[in-house]
Nucleic acid binder design. Structure first.
Lengths: 233, 233
DNA sequence: TAGATTGTTAATCGATTAACAATC
DNA sequence: TAGATTGTTAATCGATTAACAATC
């Protein structure tokens, strides 16, 4: 184990391993090899062994990994060994979906509160959680020492929301608004942009080669035309 | 321009450029440099120039890129030059959020239909789109020649849904169910797992170094203890 | 012509895979 | 002991960055 900073790509795989272990434990499987984890996850066995080895030697040579033991270690590595407190800002459909899902399934996450600016939404229940007015956010963040926030508000208000909550102690944000938000240096922000995911998927929905060779031909034909467009436009 | 297959990381950035261009055009900006695109996107200017150069020479040396021209090219590259037809399977909160967002904003996407198995949901309206029973999916897919599907059903039914829709012509799937789904070779599937995004974010919500050095100490202390646990468990 | 910025080649960096010694 | 699988080092691959000639 080296204690150099672990790369993002590795961190992104850890929760995948965690979920697989959860499922294995549910099925009373006690030992799992990197090869089996590879089949479940789609990552190579070498990569999995290397990922885990960043943090310690958790396996047994000749045998594999004890599922309960490895899960315990992964929880500590990711920081999920205590239930992590999370707030959700924005009680629209997306905010509701996220709240419902994470509140129902036990995913080591504790949704402390959901906030919205819209008076018509405030007071509604999402499962057992009541939607609070956004002005209450600072108080709740401080009281429960919440560090993590999910933002599902429209892009027009996203920056204001981020400014406000980072001021009161939020250090990690998962942002669903399609905007590049500015945060203080010590705050970690991660964007999840479903439209971009969808558009990049569409790239693969029709034959890539044909589309690109058609484009190439078009490019060649229009080398002269290009200048015209640039002038006219 | 080479016509080798373009890597996934490049394809993932193209819709980001597209969105920035849309905004610039809305603000009547006609020319943009790779440096400016870099500031808006967070990707390096060199990387942006290189990404675009995979597909052709769209800029003007000494000047930059014509925004309208580059957008036009990007639409053709991604395959969004005709509105792409998409279906949504699962009319829960997530499915509703995706449908609403993509139907309202013009994102070059045409949501043809939303399906659900639950009779109580069928018939409801999401914007101007009516929720149809899932049995209608094959007919609609064939009639409109839909290639792209978003799946927001529970993990227990996700595989069945995928099997059914791929049989009728779907070739690209964005899956929100937390499961590794099996698809025919010619079908492209991309997973969007919001829980995994959230858990990997949590890794960064508390001081990484301290947590990991605590873990390291624990590992050293329990080298002997480890065997015990493995035996007992 | 001088200044600016692209498009492209070369250098660097990082991540994945291969290989194998350690060891259960 | 023989067979299996980890943990780790070395080799490969791919992606990003640096540098600069081409050219508007």
């Amino acid at each position: 184990m080296t204690s150099r900073n672990v790369s993002k790509t590795v961190v992104k795989r850890l929760p995948v391993y965690l979920r697989i272990l959860d499922n294995l434990i549910l099925r009373d499987v006690e030992i799992v090899s990197s090869r089996e984890l590879s089949m479940e996850s789609g990552f190579s066995a070498e990569q999995i062994r290397k990922d885990l080895a960043y943090f310690g030697a958790f396996g047994t040579r000749g045998t594999g990994y004890n599922t309960a033991y490895l899960r315990d270690k992964l929880l500590k590595i990711i920081g999920l060994d205590q239930k992590t407190k999370v707030i959700v800002i924005g009680a629209g459909h997306l905010g509701t979906a996220l709240t419902r899902y994470n509140a129902v399934k036990n995913l080591y996450i504790d949704i402390v509160a959901v906030f919205d600016r819209d008076r018509r939404v405030v007071g509604q229940q999402i499962g057992h959680i009541r939607v609070l007015p956004f002005e209450k956010a600072p108080e709740i963040i401080r009281k429960h020492q919440v560090k993590v926030a999910l933002i599902t508000v429209p892009e027009t208000s996203a920056q204001k929301v981020v400014d406000e909550i980072t001021r009161h102690g939020i250090t990690a944000i998962l942002n669903f608004a399609p905007a590049k938000l500015h945060v203080p240096e010590d705050v970690h922000i991660q964007n999840s942009d479903l439209t971009i995911d969808l558009q990049s998927l569409i790239y693969y929905s029709t034959a890539e080669k044909e589309r690109l060779s058609r484009l190439q031909k078009e490019n060649e034909e229009s080398k002269t035309q290009k200048q015209k467009i640039l002038k006219i436009d």
